[in-house]
Design a protein around this nucleic acid. Structure first.
Lengths: 251, 251
DNA sequence: TAGAATTAATTTGTACACAAAACAATAATT
DNA sequence: AATTATTGTTTTGTGTACAAATTAATTCTA
């Protein structure tokens, strides 16, 4: 029975700061954003405007705006007259994103340590606790999400909004990279070491914190990117072409 | 005579990479972008959709997309039901942007030095030469533009696209900051020291290059932000309110 | 039967129309 | 006269319609 599915419930929107943002578009954005970075939508998945419009019970107009924004954030890919797909980062892009994170996160350490207070550090410890809980019950998605949240929350201690927004963008792209290249147990598998850095910050040791961050990010990258490219739909075509080419030569 | 003005000529678009971008929207975007960062449009200026649509001879649909993008880049401000205005960075935002630039530009120095070649450095020298020419003939706008271009081009030596895109965003925001707070002779007045850093890079001295960059960016910031807030339209209202409050108390 | 060409379908791009909100101007009230 | 109500105008938000392009399905041809 091909019953018409009912629309997705968007619920109430919290972060409607002032009056500057449209609540409904923001809710749609968050839904799609979460679906992508939490890997509910596989990289390469087509995102037709009509389908989304019906799913969220709005017209294509709103959907288009949201897709444009996600494209700007490099989470979806929009090609002229071809519509939007969930972005498929290349290996180079993955490396660039992690290198960028090293620059940004190590660079902000000094300000983070300078402005950290016991109260703010406790908020971070709460995130780490939730991380451990998620890992304990094998909730990998939540663990990856919280791992990202930790890094962004850490950067927010610097009270530099420009930087923490930039980092938030890099972190969400990292999630997409993990979804694209990550081996099943990558990303947050080895018990999160996030506890350690909080002690270094509390001790006010800038250089040790920076060193920890550098090492930590290199390990995360190593556990993810080295798996190289998984052959999904569009690549399949290229591989078939390569096979055909090899066959032709062997004659 | 209120003759209907003809539309703005958008010319041909060069950077239409592959087939992924829409040429006309891109051209409109570049026009508005340039108008804002080159300070042809004062911060706070209203940007009504109808006016822009008529000016560029397209419907509001296209204009809206462009404005959304500029809003995402923090060059325009969109408030619900109130339309778009050229963004007016706050002092805090200005400081954050410059702090972010220090982090990004100093952080990328190692890769820049590692990947710099004589040929690429010559391209940068060409930019510096044009900078000097612009200064010599008193073309302040062009000088500011080229100063920004230099920083972005420098970061591109790292061959990390994620980083150079981030920096490009920060540099354009800097231009807006200069437009908002800059004293008439700020930004690029003192003869540009950009020559010096190229020699340090050519010599392969990472630490000296980093130190130069740190000092350079602090000087640029100092020459701009310290002028503090100029009381433009929205602030005027607040000031009047404050005066009224003071008056009420004195009774 | 494989491949090319044609036709039909889906899907995107853009303009336009109408409703709702904000803004401006005028009238009413104290 | 100053403040509040009301009315009219402008501007934005959102849905819809239609053209253009892409994708698919079908027919034709070698």
């Amino acid at each position: 029975m091909a019953r018409k599915r009912s629309s997705i419930d968007l619920g109430a929107v919290q972060g409607d700061e002032g009056m500057s943002v449209n609540g409904r578009d923001e809710a749609i954005y968050r839904n799609l954003f979460a679906a992508i970075v939490e890997n509910h939508l596989e990289p390469g998945t087509k995102l037709p405007e009509d389908t989304l419009a019906e799913a969220f019970a709005v017209s294509r107009t709103s959907i288009r705006k949201v897709l444009q924004r996600l494209a700007y954030e490099r989470l979806v890919d929009i090609r002229l007259n071809r519509g939007a797909t969930v972005a498929q980062p290349t290996v180079k892009e993955a490396r660039d994103v992690f290198a960028a994170r090293r620059i940004v996160e190590c660079g902000v350490v000094a300000q983070v340590v300078a402005k950290a207070t016991p109260a703010r550090l406790d908020e971070l410890r709460a995130i780490v606790r939730r991380e451990h809980e998620a890992e304990a019950r094998g909730d990998r998605r939540e663990a990856i999400y919280l791992s990202g949240e930790f890094h962004v929350a850490l950067s927010r201690l610097s009270e530099n909004e420009a930087i923490s927004e930039i980092l938030a963008g890099l972190v969400s792209r990292s999630s997409l990279v993990i979804a694209t290249f990550g081996s099943p147990m990558a990303g947050s598998c080895r018990h999160s070491e996030h506890d350690d850095v909080l002690d270094l910050i509390a001790a006010g040791d800038v250089e040790a914190t920076r060193a920890w961050m550098e090492r930590h990010l290199r390990e995360v990258e190593r556990s993810v990117v080295l798996v190289e490219e998984a052959p999904s739909a569009p690549d399949l075509r290229r591989i078939l072409d390569e096979v055909a080419e090899r066959h032709r030569r062997s004659h």
